[in-house]
Design a protein around this nucleic acid. Structure first.
Lengths: 348, 348
DNA sequence: CTGTTAGCGCCTTCAA
DNA sequence: TTGAAGGCGCTAACAG
């Protein structure tokens, strides 16, 4: 039951622990025969270095912390997978944690990762609280915010990588406009999230420029899930329908919406077009074929990890970087072009 | 940049490090005033214990390792979430890793977790190699296999928690039989997986007893994804159709199958019924409504964590436990009952 | 109730 | 090329 340590190996190989350590880290100043002998003994004994001890004494763990709000969410799962991939290439292991949309837990996790002495923390959260957390670790541990994006004018006090939500919002409006839609809804807006604020702002601004009328349906729910999408849909579809298209804040919300529309006999896209946001895998399913704006998880992941590595190597100079990734429209089956005859003028 | 340690706190509070340690771990033998003073200083200094050091000296980390084959898979994501929940209740943090269906990586991750001195390892893998790994840690670190399930007759050499695949296979056959299906296909069978072996065995045995004819379509792909499901479907649906129902080894495979069936104009369930396995959230989507056997992730998770805690507390006596969870049929829209007139006798 | 002394397993100077 | 000594930050006996 007692695990074999570097000391045991040293004794068995008839050398000092220093020599064993050198063999393990293939240091240059060691006789190759000595090294081979030591490594052979290690293999025979099934020796595994104690990474706790190693990290403690070398003061770096080769561990990156990643906190996602909800790993059952396919977008975050895909993002995590891509980040793990990039991190591994750079020789880092990931400590993946799920905050489950709980701010208290997010804070606890953050402290935990810090205490665990990860070399850097990636925080995937659009909650405003994430900024405070990121700031708290100034000069303590490199931290990059994923998905969160401070507004252009506020002073940048954190490293961020995110999809360009403002541009995404604009693209959504422009795309719907290009199909002839003039009366549209923005479904699932959530206050207190910088992501949502920007996306909504972009949508409204483009819509205004294009002369579209927008009804914003805000979400009282803490997260943008299928469940919240269907609840919002039930409310939205209960009255008479003046809109011809809906932009949902996430694919999950869009899926929930479609589900209810289906139940209520609202034909999509014939009566109503719906456009999502995220580009999750399940939105591509048969019979769903959700038209959406893809966030491009692999590129987000790569940018975030690359930035993190720079911060770690460069010693986190206290400079801040904002990286924006433009989303892509993925045309599928839930948005249709209105015939000229259908194009009623905007309400307002 | 230098982080504050227990020594700093001791100096600032005018006590010894031991006293600080005691305050931190709220040991009974400490004056409450002393403790309050120490804790106040900790707060003022923003002190965070170094968990590496703590684990190293206390020889337990309160960390559980969890390896899943693919965290983009919604079933595994849900399972991980549930396990995290249970672990947290018991005061453990999870180190979640994705083996990405790569045996070499699985082994590396295992070694990594062991080296990281997690208090226990949960391995969610149906690959036969998982048993070898589990055995390798005998008396080193408690290990429970999730989803993997040794056959009844082989000597039990590992702790396992899994859905009862054999019973699940039988239930699938029985359910299809109860709907009147006599000629059916088993889609996506993969060799080298104990899970698949049992599920397939159960299906065949019940089918034989009920006088059903089964065509097994094996999968050359390493994992059961939407992608592999659609490839298998393309092959399967290319010839004339003698079956009236298909049992897919996973919901993802079923979804891929449906996608292609849709493309090829095969009506589901009118021409062909399809039954899945897993009970992932996305199978419940509108327009999909996949009939399936649910694995019941919360119960699996709870059983696994509970077992792990017993192993940790009880010191892993070298006894092995096998826990089986019976799946549940979830009736939705992709299986239909055959009319008496349609019930052709079995081919064989 | 508090402090002193030893480690935990490893890495890293500094000498030899 | 090798070894001895000290320390990473914390806990755990053992005294006082």
């Amino acid at each position: 039951m007692q695990r074999v340590t570097i000391k045991d190996i040293a004794r068995l190989a008839g050398v000092s622990v220093t020599t064993v350590s050198r063999a393990l880290n293939d240091a240059p100043e060691i006789h190759s025969e000595t090294r081979d002998k030591v490594l052979r003994v290690c293999r025979e004994q099934g020796y595994r270095a104690n990474l706790l001890a190693r990290s403690l004494s070398s003061s770096h763990s080769n561990l990156l912390g990643l906190v996602v709000p909800d790993m059952a969410n396919p977008f975050h799962a895909a993002l995590a997978l891509n980040i793990e991939l990039c991190a591994q290439e750079a020789g880092y292991q990931l400590m993946l944690c799920s905050s489950r949309r709980d701010d208290q837990r997010l804070e606890n996790l953050f402290d935990f990762l810090y205490s665990q002495r990860v070399d850097g923390i990636l925080l995937s959260s659009a909650a405003d609280g994430a900024f405070a957390l990121a700031r708290r670790c100034l000069g303590q541990v490199p931290c990059v915010l994923l998905g969160a994006c401070p507004s252009e004018d506020s002073p940048l006090r954190a490293n961020t990588v995110s999809v360009d939500n403002y541009a995404g919002g604009r693209m959504a409006a422009e795309y719907l406009h290009s199909l002839g839609h003039r009366n549209v809804a923005y479904l699932g807006h959530r206050a207190g999230s910088s992501t949502h604020a920007l996306r909504h702002g972009g949508f409204l601004s483009a819509a205004a420029e294009l002369g579209m009328s927008v009804e914003t349906v805000s979400s009282p729910f803490p997260s943008s899930t299928i469940e919240s999408g269907s609840r919002l849909a039930r409310e939205f579809l209960s009255g008479p329908l003046s809109q011809t298209a809906v932009f949902a804040v996430s694919d999950a919300v869009a899926l929930g919406f479609i589900q209810v529309a289906d139940e209520l006999g609202v034909a999509i896209p014939d009566q109503l077009s719906i456009l999502g946001f995220d580009g999750i895998e399940y939105a591509a399913l048969p019979n769903i074929r959700l038209t959406t704006l893809s966030q491009n998880a692999p590129r987000l992941a790569q940018a975030a990890v690359r930035l993190m590595l720079e911060l770690i190597d460069g010693g986190d100079q206290g400079m801040y970087t904002r990286t924006l990734i433009t989303p892509t429209v993925i045309r599928r089956a839930t948005c249709r072009a209105l015939e000229p005859s259908e194009q009623v003028p905007s309400e307002c």
